[in-house]
Design a protein around this nucleic acid. Structure first.
Length: 323
DNA sequence: CTCCAGGGTACAC
DNA sequence: GTGTACCATGGA
């Protein structure tokens, strides 16, 4: 993808009054092929307990952080545009600044992983017995990211060893207890709790949300590292390679190989990140191969040899077969 | 009641 | 380095 500033085209910012008192201004961004907006919306709709964005009437609503220390937020609506494009509409009560619009465009590009060319993955997967079916069924789905490092780490920790619906419930309680909401255009969206807030909590403030004491300690510890500037997304991105980022992450209490790879996959956008211990991956393989039992790690390593460089996308597409 | 869930730590050897 | 108990809670 070229410089995002060059890829922005002005939409028709007519002064409509669909929501009296609000200012509408659109930005249209091109999308790479293959991309299928509805396929991605279907993924984003998989939990009705999701609290960090809304899907409604084929449109996606999200609060995008930007500006100094990510302290400002833009409420945006993302919808399919004409041809190969997405339309971003700003729902704030003032016209978005240039910085705000650039941030929103870049956020969407990162969220949907527009920087990755999926064609090599599809060429590989079309020949792979395990992936052939899922890439046919979900063609145009991209690996949806969690751009914020703290959010990605928290989501990984919260999801450890519990079922997914309960993990969503815990995230919602966590966000609604310690985050802030912003309203606009008839929608209310939440910003994820700041690490500085979580770092100052007592474990008991999290355990009363039914988060286990162990995970409460993990969350507070990770929040403190980020709040103190000892851990950041640029810091991990500047590591010489992916293995170094994993090593740095797994040195943190509460972050094992699964969580480290999960964060590399969803936040750092490492295409070869591979949470091989993932029970969802195991169940997907068991399902696709009609196995009586879950595959062993060695068996998965054998199957994944063909995925080299695309382990993250392979995992994401296999997960999709389960939900 | 039992088993499982998008794991990780602490400790043994 | 590999193996094991334990963590703690909701859902099927």
């Amino acid at each position: 993808m070229s410089d995002p500033a060059e890829s922005i085209r002005e939409g028709h910012a007519r002064p409509q009054q669909a929501f009296p008192g609000t200012v509408q201004q659109n930005v249209i961004i091109p999308v790479p092929e293959p991309f299928h907006f509805q396929m991605n919306l279907d993924y984003l709709s998989r939990s009705d307990n999701e609290c960090m964005f809304h899907v409604q009437n084929d449109k996606l609503y999200k609060l995008v952080p930007y500006g100094e220390k990510q302290m400002e937020h833009a409420l945006i609506e993302i919808s399919a545009g004409q041809g190969h494009s997405l339309n971003i509409r700003f729902l704030g009560d003032v016209p978005p600044s240039e910085a705000c619009r650039l941030a929103a465009v870049r956020y969407v590009q990162i969220w949907f992983d527009f920087d990755t060319d999926l064609n090599p993955f599809y060429r590989m997967a079309n020949r792979d017995p395990l992936l052939k079916e899922t890439v046919k069924r979900f063609r145009g789905l991209r690996l949806i990211g969690i751009p914020d490092l703290f959010e990605a780490l928290c989501w990984g920790i919260l999801g450890q060893q519990i079922n997914l619906p309960f993990a969503y419930t815990l995230k919602r309680r966590f966000v609604e207890q310690f985050g802030h909401s912003v309203s606009g255009g008839g929608h209310e969206l939440w910003q994820f709790p700041a690490p500085e807030i979580i770092a100052g909590l007592e474990a008991e403030q999290l355990t009363r949300l039914q988060i286990t004491n162990r995970k409460a300690e993990y969350l507070i510890g990770v929040a403190a590292l980020i709040a103190e500037g000892k851990l950041s997304k640029p810091m991990l991105q500047q590591e010489p390679d992916f293995a170094a980022a994993v090593k740095r992450l797994t040195a943190i209490r509460g972050i094992g190989p699964w969580t480290a790879h999960y964060v590399c996959m969803r936040c750092l956008r490492v295409p070869s990140a591979f949470p091989i211990e993932d029970v969802g991956l195991h169940n997907a393989i068991k399902l696709m191969l009609s196995m009586e039992r879950k595959p062993t790690l060695d068996e998965i390593r054998q199957l994944a040899q063909a995925w080299t460089g695309w382990e993250a996308y392979a995992t994401f597409y296999l997960w999709r077969m389960l939900y």
